[in-house]
């Protein structure tokens, strides 16, 4: 009895009266509803405004299909490349100490703070007709800007830090003991990575890949600068949405946009699942008894010599 009342008093001291709770929750939920839910709902209602028929027609257009193919191709190249980079960068930064590490981490984050339009522009300056390699590329009949390679490069730039910045803190938190043990026991570097490091970071890896993919498929500004907007050739899905919208084909624009919105919802679902699994594994690991070999628990003052 006494115990229960103490708990209640402490509880009341660190929370607000019910009416404050209701008002705060109400304001927060209204904000979420107005700024997040309503725009999301608007995409689907606008897409279906003239019925399912015109919705399907818009998606079956050849230009829409080529936009889907290009978007898949772009993400299919950009995401794996950034994945390899992310793992390599995380290994170097999180497992080793070296001078300039903080600076390197800042440089890896750099593309996040560069405007997408500037990201597109820098590739135009390198590969465009008036750029550094422009004349050489023209002489060899290679098109990068206003062509698919430029779109892929710009996408790689804007999604550059996603996987690396997800993995670096994760690998840092896990330390190097397990890997050192594997190496000492005779595993090769690759074996150590595959069997020790990778299982430890798999959720962070999936998380990073999912977010990287969403941005790669949805990037607009950077891709818009380098694409040249050639219908059926250099239009990704977001660019196709823009073209349809500017041509006042509202239903078609929102139909294609609804594909991207579905992708976003799928991303959020997978992301939540990953977070949930990760938390569960963390909790399971915490609830395990600490590994304490009998020999040491018998002699508590005997510290192992490393």
């Amino acid at each position: 009895m006494n115990h229960a009342s103490t708990v209640r008093t402490v509880h009341a001291a660190t929370t607000e009266p019910a009416w404050v709770k209701w008002i705060l929750t109400g304001i927060a939920l209204s904000f979420i509803f107005l700024f997040l839910l309503l725009p999301l709902a608007a995409v689907f209602t606008e897409a279906l405004r003239k019925g399912l028929g015109s919705f399907w027609d818009a998606l079956q257009e050849p230009d829409a299909w080529s936009a889907i193919r290009l978007t898949l191709l772009t993400a299919g190249i950009a995401v794996p490349l950034n994945l390899v980079f992310g793992v390599a960068a995380a290994w170097a930064v999180a497992k080793f100490e070296f001078r300039g590490k903080a600076f390197l981490t800042t440089l890896i984050d750099l593309p996040f703070s560069v405007s997408p339009v500037v990201a597109g522009l820098i590739y135009v300056l390198v590969f465009g007709a008036q750029g550094w390699f422009g004349p050489w590329l023209q002489a060899h009949d290679i098109k990068i800007i206003f062509a698919v390679p430029g779109i892929i490069l710009a996408t790689i730039f804007v999604t550059f830090p996603f996987i690396a910045r997800e993995l670096i803190p994760l690998i840092q938190a896990q330390g190097t003991e397990e890997e050192q043990a594997a190496i000492v026991l005779g595993a090769s570097g690759w074996q150590t990575f595959w069997y020790v490091t990778l299982p430890n970071i798999k959720w962070g890896l999936i998380y990073g890949v999912i977010l990287c993919n969403a941005r790669a498929m949805g990037e607009f500004g950077a891709v818009s600068v380098v694409s040249g907007h050639i219908r059926g050739q250099t239009n990704t899905l977001p660019l196709h949405v823009e073209i349809l919208y500017n041509e006042y084909q509202s239903v078609a624009a929102f139909a294609v946009a609804s594909l991207l919105a579905l992708l976003a919802l799928l991303t959020l679902v997978i992301k939540s699942l990953v977070e949930w699994r990760f938390e569960r594994e963390q909790k399971a690991a915490l609830s395990l008894p600490p590994e304490q070999p009998l020999a040491y628990s018998a002699q508590p003052h005997d510290t192992p010599k490393s």
Binding site: L36, E46, G218, E219, Y245, F254, L260
Partner: peptide
């Protein structure tokens, strides 16, 4: 849902 702006392409957010 809070992460929606990270996942939704900006052009879609714009027209919506």
């Amino acid at each position: 849902l809070v992460d929606l702006p990270f996942a939704l392409p900006t052009a879609v957010a714009g027209i919506s």
